[in-house]
Every structure is written in structure tokens, then in C-alpha cells.
């Protein structure tokens, strides 16, 4: 039990008071997080590294491909909003909506990829996964700056569950990157599209969940652990 009385605690806190800079409104924070992704994508396209498919490309008329693309973008925005909201005390409702959007987006993307897979031929090239690593890395790279901006916001706001918040932030950023990769990647294998595009956010988040949680706790401290 505490040996300090609430009165003493209040006195200590008042004595420690200094002016602080407010965090931006949540929608502004989300916009600032998504903006670097748009800039990176524009730079990539401007430099000719990755271009979207031509309008006549069968990709744009494939319901499966469009489901993966739209699902990834919904996951990206929902997960990012949920991650940022999880670090602001009274934004639990926004966080829940973000998580719902994330789940719906994941369902659409995975549903599209799996339905596409159900009609596919068995894997012809046993080395298909090598190309998948490239796409996973590309999706990560495209979302990296956005992910770092989100992590910075989470760490400097009122981070409460470092592992969960940072995992959501990274999943969101990679989902945005994977959306662009999906729209530009020329690989047609359905397994590749499932693993390297639709599952990219989950794979990268699963790989980074523990190191990210530890890093966030070390960098910014935490009021609680998860």
C-alpha cells in the first residue's frame, strides 16, 4: 500500500507542473501519418521505380485483385487509426472502429486472395517465394516512414499497450505499402498475391511484434505492459 497520501501526491504533481504541447487532433495525426506514404509512392512513381498498371490491364477488371487492393487500403487506414487512438485515453471508440475496419479490410483482402487461389492451378514454380520476399520488403519500405511517424505519435502520446499499439501501427503502414505493391507488381501467381500482398501486413507485424514492443518500452517507457 502507498505510504504517500493523496494530498502529498497532489502537491508533488503540482510542483512538477510545466507547460506542455498538446498532441494534434486524431484526424490530423492520421493525416500526418498517411501523408509520408503518399509522398513515398509519388516519388517511386516519379522516379519510375514502380508504376501502376495501365487502365486496360485485366487487373482493374478482376474482382479478386480489386478486393485485395481495397481490403489492404482499408486495413491500412483502420489499423493506423486504431493504433493512434489506442494512445489517447478517451479515444477507445475510435480505436474500436479502427479495429472493426481493419477486420473488415482483412476479410475482404484475404477473401479475394483465397477465392482467387481456389481456382488456381497448383504452383508451377517452386521458387515463387523468393519473389515474395522482394514484395514483402517493398511493402515494408513503402510504409516505413508512415510507420515511424505512427510509432513516434504513439510513444509521445499516452502509450498504454506498447506491443499492441506498435504492432497495429506497423501492420497499418505495411498494408498501405502492400496495396501499392499489389497495384504495381507484375507477378501473376495467386500464391504470391496471397502471401506477399494480402498477408504482408500480418507477416511483417508477426515478425516485429516482440522487438517493437521492447523497443517502444525502452524508447518511451510505458505505464503498463502487454
Amino acid at each position: 500500500m502507498s505510504t504517500t497520501s493523496a494530498e502529498d501526491r497532489i502537491r508533488d504533481l503540482v510542483a512538477d507542473l510545466h507547460p506542455v504541447r498538446r498532441i494534434p487532433p486524431l484526424r490530423v495525426a492520421v493525416a500526418w501519418t498517411v501523408l509520408p506514404w503518399l509522398v513515398v509512392v509519388a516519388l517511386e512513381w516519379g522516379l519510375g521505380r514502380a508504376r501502376p498498371r495501365a487502365l486496360g490491364d485485366p487487373f482493374w477488371s478482376s474482382p479478386f485483385a480489386l478486393a485485395i487492393l481495397s481490403g489492404l487500403l482499408v486495413v491500412g487506414l483502420g489499423s493506423t487509426a486504431a493504433a493512434l487512438a489506442s494512445s489517447v485515453p478517451d479515444r477507445a471508440r475510435t480505436m474500436r472502429w479502427g479495429l472493426v475496419a481493419c477486420a473488415i479490410g482483412a476479410g475482404i483482402a484475404l477473401g479475394g486472395a483465397l477465392l482467387q487461389l481456389s481456382g488456381a492451378l497448383p504452383i508451377a514454380d517452386p521458387g515463387w517465394w523468393r519473389g515474395s520476399l522482394g514484395c514483402l520488403g517493398h511493402a515494408f519500405g513503402l510504409g516505413l516512414v508512415s510507420g515511424l511517424v505512427a510509432l513516434r505519435f504513439i510513444g509521445t502520446a499516452a502509450m498504454w499497450r506498447p506491443r499492441a499499439s506498435s504492432t497495429l501501427a506497423v501492420a497499418g503502414a505495411v498494408a498501405l505499402g502492400a496495396g501499392v505493391v499489389h497495384a504495381t507488381c507484375r507477378a501473376g501467381e495467386t500464391y504470391h498475391q496471397l502471401v506477399a500482398h494480402a498477408l504482408a501486413p500480418a507477416i511483417v507485424a508477426a515478425l516485429l511484434v516482440i522487438p517493437l514492443g521492447l523497443a517502444m518500452r525502452r524508447l518511451y517507457g510505458a505505464r503498463s505492459s502487454d
Binding site: M1, T4, A6, L13, D16, R21, R22, P25, A157
Partner: peptide, 25 residues
């Protein structure tokens, strides 16, 4: 016995998180 600890922890959390309060809310 734990209540006062929790209350004081909440006050400390409020102090640390005070920059996350938005005046329009």
C-alpha cells in the same frame, strides 16, 4: 487496501498524459 494506490497511480498517469487532452473534447 489497493484502492488508494490505484487512485494515486491514476493521478500520476493524468499528470504524464496531460498533453493528450484536447480542449475541444
Amino acid at each position: 487496501a489497493a484502492r488508494e494506490d490505484i487512485v494515486q497511480n491514476a493521478l500520476v498517469s493524468l499528470h504524464r498524459s496531460r498533453h493528450t487532452y484536447r480542449p475541444e473534447r
